Computed example of a mutant assay.
Amino acid sequence: MRAERILPYAKPWILIDQVTELKGGTQAVAVKQISSSDFYLQGHFPAHSIYPGMLLLEGIRQTIACVFLQEGTAAVWKESEVSSRFMHPVEPGDSVKYVVIRRPSGMHAAQFDGEGWVGDNKVIQARIAYRKEEEANEANARQ
């Protein structure tokens, strides 16, 4: 299914093209075709364009958002912690497959492991943790 039918974002900031799999609040798979006409590739880098790593991370976030939106809880969760590792450059013409899996983490927390793949090459891995909004607000008030 087309990502713009699911995500509440406007183009050009929808950074996944298609959601190919959604499994009951626990897993999602999405695909992004990297095109040389994508404006964020212009000048990054002029002699040899590569897809910005932060946009790869955002692709994982948007794939996770599809999981939350499917279960109707997107407004409840606030991102609380992110760790990521970029492993291989992504270039125009590549197709990135994002896979996110929700890990057991309790009623007031959610944690996802995400990966991005170009063919057999893992290009990014990330772990993103979320807290329920009221939990996040209480933690911020204590700081």
Results as ranks from 00 to 15, higher is better:
residue 85 R to Q: 15
residue 35 S to K: 15
residue 54 M to T: 11
residue 69 L to A: 08
residue 28 A to M: 05
residue 111 Q to L: 14
residue 82 V to T: 14
residue 120 D to G: 02
residue 47 A to Y: 06
residue 95 S to Y: 02
residue 94 D to A: 10
residue 98 Y to S: 05
residue 27 Q to D: 03
residue 114 G to L: 04
residue 64 I to S: 02
residue 50 I to N: 01
residue 89 P to M: 05
residue 30 A to R: 01
residue 57 L to M: 13
residue 119 G to S: 04
residue 119 G to C: 04
residue 26 T to M: 14
residue 65 A to L: 14
residue 71 E to F: 02
residue 111 Q to T: 10
residue 103 R to Q: 15
residue 83 S to K: 11
residue 99 V to A: 00
residue 67 V to P: 03
residue 116 G to Q: 02
residue 51 Y to M: 13
residue 108 H to V: 09
residue 109 A to R: 15
residue 105 S to M: 12
residue 85 R to K: 15
residue 119 G to K: 01
residue 63 T to D: 01
residue 103 R to L: 12
residue 40 Y to W: 15
residue 53 G to R: 01
residue 78 K to R: 12
residue 107 M to T: 12
residue 97 K to Y: 03
residue 64 I to A: 01
residue 99 V to R: 10
residue 97 K to I: 13
residue 107 M to P: 06
residue 58 E to H: 02
residue 108 H to T: 12
residue 108 H to C: 06
residue 20 T to P: 02
residue 121 N to I: 07
residue 102 R to A: 13
residue 49 S to E: 09
residue 101 I to N: 12
residue 47 A to R: 08
residue 122 K to V: 11
residue 87 M to L: 15
residue 49 S to C: 09
residue 53 G to Y: 10
residue 86 F to L: 13
residue 114 G to D: 09
residue 110 A to Q: 08
residue 88 H to V: 02
residue 69 L to E: 11
residue 114 G to A: 07
residue 28 A to V: 11
residue 62 Q to N: 05
residue 44 H to M: 03
residue 82 V to Q: 10
